[in-house]
């Protein structure tokens, strides 16, 4: 075998190795989703979504957990988005590039890597105890807001940074103030990127379990929250609770709830991809 043939063989081998590696992840995901679908799809009907949890598996529904998740999602959005976007814009547009800003930057990246249960402990101490919000939806949402803030800040910075300097120049040269330039040019132009980051962050928040358990979300709640200070459960906790039951019926319920949860995150990711593409088109 000469060296050309050898190289070709290596080329082919690497190609197939690459395909195999790619497939491992995909196949496992397909198997997992398939398995869940087989277990749970027959359990999903309107009653499953609108029923309260019950001791009997076949009468149990996800209504309270779903409502809890929606409450958490809404409150987290309201809290985390303005704070995260403002912080991102500040860091990119206002803060001077010095040692302090470098330290800030590194720490924000570090925060993104802190295990979520640590955020849960922080939330328990600060929101539940010191601010005495109790094990409420608000305390949970505040905790998750902290968790996803770094993601939103980083996404905002990247999106704002991607707006060409020429747009800033044009705006300033027409007599716009910094605030006007940010509000009328930078934010609309980077809106797609920011929205993508926000949605991805929120879809992470909706799947979080550990910090909410620490904060005190309940596994069994007989009612849906009606105000931010109510106790609550969320879908992942409901799933966790059902899976730990011995009866087979609850396993089916868990599978069905997983399908709903996956559906929510897939739809959110889909929306994120849609906005990203739309935004990219606008610039090209």
């Amino acid at each position: 075998m000469n060296s050309i043939q050898k190289n070709r063989l290596k080329d082919q081998l690497f190609k197939y190795w690459g395909i195999a590696c790619t497939l491992i992840g995909l196949v496992l995901l397909v198997l997992f989703i398939g398995d869940i679908l087989i277990d749970g799809i027959s359990r999903i009907d309107w009653a499953f979504i609108t029923d309260l949890p019950s001791r009997k598996a076949e009468k149990s529904g996800i209504y309270t957990a779903l409502m809890g998740s929606i409450w958490i999602l809404l409150l987290t959005t309201i809290i985390a988005v303005p704070v995260g976007v403002a912080a991102g814009v500040y860091l990119e547009e206002y803060s001077k590039k010095n040692r302090l800003s470098a330290i800030l930057e590194i720490n924000i990246s570090n925060l993104a890597g802190v295990p979520s249960i640590i955020y849960g402990l922080l939330g328990l101490e600060v929101f539940v105890r010191i601010m005495s919000l109790g094990a409420s939806v608000l305390a949970g949402a505040l905790t998750l807001s902290l968790l996803i803030l770094p993601i939103i800040i980083v996404a905002t910075r990247e999106a704002v940074k991607a707006v060409p300097k020429s747009i800033r120049d044009a705006s300033y040269a027409l007599g716009a103030s910094k605030w006007q330039t940010i509000w009328y040019q930078l934010l609309p132009a980077s809106g797609g990127g920011i929205l993508t980051g926000v949605i991805l962050a929120l879809s992470r928040a909706v799947g979080e379990t550990a910090p909410l358990i620490v904060v005190g979300a309940l596994a069994y709640v007989p009612f849906a929250p009606s105000n931010p200070l109510d106790e609550f459960s969320v879908l992942p906790i409901q799933i966790f609770n059902w899976i730990s039951r011995p009866q087979h019926g609850f396993i089916e319920n868990a599978a069905a709830a997983i399908i709903i949860l996956l559906l929510i995150t897939f739809v959110m990711n889909g929306i994120a991809v849609y906005f990203r593409n739309k935004w990219q088109k606008k610039w090209k």
């Binding site: 747009i167 120049d169 040269a173 716009a176 103030s177 009328y184």
Partner: peptide, 23 residues
């Protein structure tokens, strides 16, 4: 000021011209 590379805002023609007045 007019710059080296044309740098219209990613907005409509009208909005581009009216921007300086609107702000």
């Amino acid at each position: 000021m007019v710059f080296q590379k044309p740098n219209p805002f990613p907005k409509s023609i009208f909005e581009n011209v009216a921007y300086g007045l609107k702000i």
